[in-house]
Computed example of a mutant assay.
Amino acid sequence: MRDVTLSFDLYWSFRSPYSYMVTGRLAALQRDYDVECHVRPVYPLAVRTPEFFEQQDPLWLSYFMTDVFREAEFLGLPFRWPRPDPVQRSPEEGYGMKQPHIHRLTHLGVEAVQRGRGLQFLDEVSRTIWGGEVDSWHEGDHLAQAAERAGLDFAEMAAAVEADPGRFAAVVEENQVAQRAAGHWGVPMMVFGGEAFFGQDRFDQLKSRMEAQDLRRR
């Protein structure tokens, strides 16, 4: 019988509805089983490679928008497209415009990881952004309340992010390089035992691999 805690890496974006959809299951997995999730926030494709969306077949978007709502309903999760979208787009610049929302969110995610509450922060914030009950999630104390539920001091986190954005951007870049080296570029992506599991619908397969390695309840 093994005597070490299992662990896996999670590559995750605040702009990904599918990232939101898997986070609750991953949080429950870490809570209930002897397994540790190493959260590695990344920027969404719209920021990393904005041309990705310009090159898609026109049917891609219509299918995607059907699928995300259908999948959320299937999983029993509240869902609405965020207001505002964490990634902004203009007719003139497309996704190449400044992106203050997603950079701030991603850097806050890095800070939460460094404070040892990364997955909890992702879970609470993604529910705030995608759950459909909060308008203007970026204003007021919505993020602060989410951070508090995750066991974090939002004021301290925000101050750290604002003081040295370059340091946080460098961590995100490291995560993105590691993500591709692990075998994929999309999110959510879990990596366990050197094997990449891309997509929220790969959760059961991920857990099955862990069970084969003597996954134990806490």
Rank of each mutant, 00 (worst) to 15 (best):
M1K: 09
M1D: 11
D3H: 06
V4P: 00
S7K: 12
F8V: 03
D9Y: 02
L10E: 07
Y11P: 14
F14T: 10
F14A: 12
Y20S: 09
M21K: 09
V22N: 08
V22I: 15
T23S: 12
R25T: 03
A27N: 10
C37R: 05
H38Q: 07
H38N: 12
V42E: 07
A46C: 02
A46R: 11
T49E: 11
P50W: 01
P50S: 01
P58H: 02
L59M: 04
F64Y: 13
R70D: 09
L75M: 13
R83Q: 10
P84E: 00
P84V: 01
V87I: 13
V87W: 01
S90V: 04
P91T: 05
G94L: 09
Y95R: 02
H103D: 10
T106N: 03
A112W: 00
Q114C: 07
Q120G: 13
E124W: 00
T128A: 12
G131I: 01
H138V: 05
E139A: 13
G140F: 03
L143V: 03
A147S: 14
R149G: 12
A150L: 08
A150K: 08
G151M: 11
G151E: 05
L152R: 01
M157Q: 09
A159V: 01
V161D: 05
E162H: 04
D164A: 15
P165H: 03
G166A: 08
R167D: 12
F168P: 15
A170K: 08
V171W: 05
V172P: 15
E174K: 14
N175Y: 04
V177Y: 02
G186K: 06
M189K: 01
V191S: 09
V191M: 07
G194S: 02
F197S: 08
F198M: 05
F198N: 02
G199C: 06
D201H: 06
R202H: 14
F203P: 07
D204T: 08
L206W: 07
R217Q: 15
